[in-house]
Each structure stands twice: as C-alpha cells, then as structure tokens.
C-alpha cells in the first residue's frame, strides 16, 4: 500500500515536470501538442481510492493551468477523465474489470489500447472544447482533438514501454 502511494506521488511529479519542461514546448505543425501527463490518471491503480484519484486529478490539472495560463481548462478535463475512468474500464475490459486483475503497465493488448484511446479522446475533447469556448470553433476543436490524440497516444505508449517494471 505504502509503496503504491510513493510510486504514484513520484509519477505525479515526474510526469508534470516532463510535461511542463519538454512537451509543452512541442508544437507539431504549430498547434498540435501532446499531453502525456494524463498517464498519471490512466495508470492509477484500478482498485485505488476513487476520491483520492478525483482530488489528485484536480490538483494535477490546476498545476497545469498555473503553468499554461489556461484558467481551469486542464483541471476540468482531468476531473472528467478521473470520474469516468471506472466506466471506461467497464467498457474496455468487460467482465474482467469486476475481478480487478487488470494491469495496464504491460504488453499492449486491444483492450488496453481501447482503454487508453477512450481516455485520451475524452480528456482532449473536453480540454479543447473549453479552450476554444465558442461553438463556432467546433470544427477546429474536433480536428485538433483528433490530431493531438494520435500524438499523445504514441508518446503514452512509448512511455509505458519505457517504464514497464521488469519481471525477471
């Protein structure tokens, strides 16, 4: 229990740091930027404390807002993702979610991929919708969501493979 808590705190700080220092400065084609910091929410233990996740996600988002001058858009997007995470689990993994034996930090299977995809899409769509804050920009919002999702997922999968705990 204690070690998972420590791992999560460490992950929280590390992901925020690389997001702010490296990925916030990445602007592919001028407007596509990846947000791999949401890996914290994705990789949070399945049977962990739900209220803890919601509170931590809010904190994560508000720190991102602090650094990118975006009001409360990151906080809202992270909260929405954290709250709907159990439903996405149920959708992606079906029955095995009930047994709570899922490990995300592992080889990529279709279920794991669909879970990550759904999470990223939900987060990015909320984020870009609130960032534009105007329905006349809806087409731009959808395009940015689509392109950034692809970018974020690629980087997320690379990070997961890099930090995958060694079994042997």
């Amino acid at each position: 229990m204690n070690s998972t808590l420590l791992v999560n705190i460490f992950r929280f700080i590390l992901l925020l740091a690389i997001q702010i220092i490296i990925f916030n400065n990445m602007n592919f084609l001028g407007y596509i930027s990846p947000f791999p910091y949401i890996l914290f929410i994705i990789l949070y233990p399945v049977n962990g404390n739900k209220s803890g996740l919601v509170a931590a996600s809010f904190l994560l988002g508000i720190i991102m807002d602090l650094f990118s001058n975006s009001g409360g858009t990151h906080a809202t997007a992270c909260l929405v993702l954290a709250y709907f995470r159990p439903s996405i689990f149920k959708f992606a993994f079906g029955l095995s979610y009930e047994y709570q034996t899922i490990k995300l930090n592992d080889v990529l299977t279709p279920q794991r991929f669909s879970f990550i995809l759904l999470s990223v899409v939900i987060h990015h769509f909320t984020l870009f919708l609130l960032e534009a804050f105007q329905l006349s920009f809806i087409l731009d919002t959808l395009i940015t969501t689509l392109l950034s999702t692809v970018f974020t997922i690629i980087i997320c999968i690379i990070i997961i493979y890099l930090i995958k705990p060694n079994k042997r």
Binding site: V54, F58, G61, I62, G71, A75, T76, L79, F133
Partner: peptide, 10 residues
Amino acid sequence: LLLGISLALT
C-alpha cells in the same frame, strides 16, 4: 464540487 470550481475558473 471540484468540477464546479474548475468550471467557474474556466
């Protein structure tokens, strides 16, 4: 509660 706060900020 937190959603209210963050939406208000946005």
